[in-house]
Design a protein around this nucleic acid. Structure first.
Ligand SMILES: NC(=O)c1ccc[n+]([C@@H]2O[C@H](COP(=O)([O-])OP(=O)(O)OC[C@H]3O[C@@H](n4cnc5c(N)ncnc54)[C@H](O)[C@@H]3O)[C@@H](O)[C@H]2O)c1
Ligand SMILES: NC(=O)c1ccc[n+]([C@@H]2O[C@H](COP(=O)([O-])OP(=O)(O)OC[C@H]3O[C@@H](n4cnc5c(N)ncnc54)[C@H](O)[C@@H]3O)[C@@H](O)[C@H]2O)c1
Lengths: 219, 219
DNA sequence: TTATAATCAGTAAATTAATATCGATATTTA
DNA sequence: TAAATATCGATATTAATTTACTGATTATAA
């Protein structure tokens, strides 16, 4: 057998970013017809280098693959999810129940990733007391009390840019551990708070750059 | 003067991802009080290495910085925007005018990045004919006609996952150049079509991983 | 049963990215 | 006006990531 000496090799940041794509690909396979899959096949399908895929999978997979057949699809899905921390369920609240906040509140898909959005906050009196996807909207004053009693770990910021730092401070004081920020602002937070920005400008910048190159070529 | 031999050094993918953060930082400065800024200052504020920042800025800046004072803030903002292609205005349509689609349609911020969303599509008869942020919703059958007449370059996919490939095919046939995909699906598109995924799972995976490490430490 | 081929895991090499160092050059200050 | 210093651009070094290579292993087919 191809024995795995090193059980879980170094965590690469780039590999971490590729994992969700593997997961999407694997979950789209028909589990009754495709039981095993090789790194080679995945690499070809996703347009990646096969050694890279094999290394990435080795980092996440507990049991490893076997020569000639590859990895058990079901096991691999389970292992990648566990590797990404989707097994651990975290409680979250949303600050800013506007267009984007409501979309996120209503989205069912986050459960898949272990994110449980349990409540929302807003300053708008018309929103307070309403429910979206059975999740209640509270006034911001209630944040410390609710975050502590519901053991909230993650705060999701979807307020207008000018209020985002405020929301961040408020969340920090409410004892949360991490912030997922959708506002186009660089937040200042204590070092122990994890801040992850969902910056659509990055995506757009990459798209825009590629497009600009492409259109210049066509000329 | 510190002459710049190499006018615009190699484009690094990682640098491209950092550019929007520089832009956010620079735009938050008060232009009347802060006229020039050094790479050192930016690096300290953003928690990055100063040489890295200097290299990144050198790649985007046309005129370069000067010893002792640094870069002119206004010029630098202009140069980074141009480097990222935010100057070129692209027309876009949204496929799927649900919660997320409506949020994106209503968002004013994209104009800043040169993205002009001009119309939306949906299969839901109740949505067809409505307007969001003055942008009309059409039935998908009109896609080829509208995309060609309005010279649409970008299609934004916000339909449920199971219809995303359909939407992608439809957009491709309608002559668009690039797709910005929000559905959790790996799309198959002709090689000449640029596909950029906005995969919130990546963000969440990184957050989840950090959080898991952090909470284990606290234990 | 034995040869063949696909695939794995591990190691080595190459590429890319990040950081350190150095001489040049403006601005500030003595 | 001269010295001190912050900052630049460039080059060198180090680290991270990707890609290539090698030998072992297992399913398949001769
Ligand atoms: N809509 C999008 O597609 C989109 C895309 C990218 C980024 N963003 C960013 O997400 C944020 C929200 O965007 P949106 O379109 O949902 O805006 P929105 O105006 O629809 O919603 C903002 C909500 O925040 C509430 N709010 C304001 N101050 C608050 C406070 N201090 N505490 C709690 N709630 C407060 C408002 O009452 C409102 O309901 C913005 O920062 C925006 O830049 C939005
Ligand atoms: N809502 C979120 O916060 C969120 C977050 C991440 C990803 N996403 C993804 O974005 C997509 C949209 O999410 P949503 O919450 O807005 O869903 P939604 O159900 O609110 O909206 C989907 C819309 O697409 C329309 N539609 C269905 N088939 C169509 C077709 N063939 N052509 C045109 N329109 C069609 C529907 O009528 C509906 O209006 C999904 O793929 C979802 O996984 C959503």
């Amino acid at each position: 057998m191809a024995v795995r000496l090193e059980k879980n090799p170094a965590v690469s940041k780039q590999a971490l970013r590729r994992m969700p794509a593997y997961l999407l690909y694997l979950e789209a396979l028909n589990p009754t017809t495709v039981v095993s899959i090789s790194a080679t096949t995945i690499a070809n399908e996703l347009g990646l280098n096969e050694v890279q895929v094999r290394k990435d999978l080795a980092a996440a997979s507990l049991s490893g693959g076997r020569p000639r057949t590859g990895f058990k699809v079901k096991e691999l899905i389970r292992d990648i999810k566990s590797y990404l921390g989707y097994d651990d369920v975290y409680n979250a609240v949303i600050i800013g129940t506007g267009k984007l906040g409501q979309a996120l509140l209503s989205y069912q898909g986050f459960a898949e990733y272990g994110l449980d959005i349990v409540a929302a906050f807003d300053t708008n009196p018309e929103l307070i007391g309403q429910q979206f996807n059975r999740k209640p909207v509270y006034p911001p004053e209630k944040m410390p009390e609710i975050c502590r009693s519901l053991k909230i770990q993650i705060g999701i910021i979807t307020v207008p840019a000018e209020y985002a730092q405020d929301a961040c401070d408020h969340l920090t004081e409410s004892g949360i551990q991490a912030i997922w920020n959708f506002a186009p602002v660089l937040l200042t937070a204590p070092p122990e708070i994890i801040v992850q920005n969902e910056n659509m400008a990055i995506s757009l910048a990459i798209l825009s750059q590629h497009l600009s190159v492409k259109l210049k070529k066509q000329h």
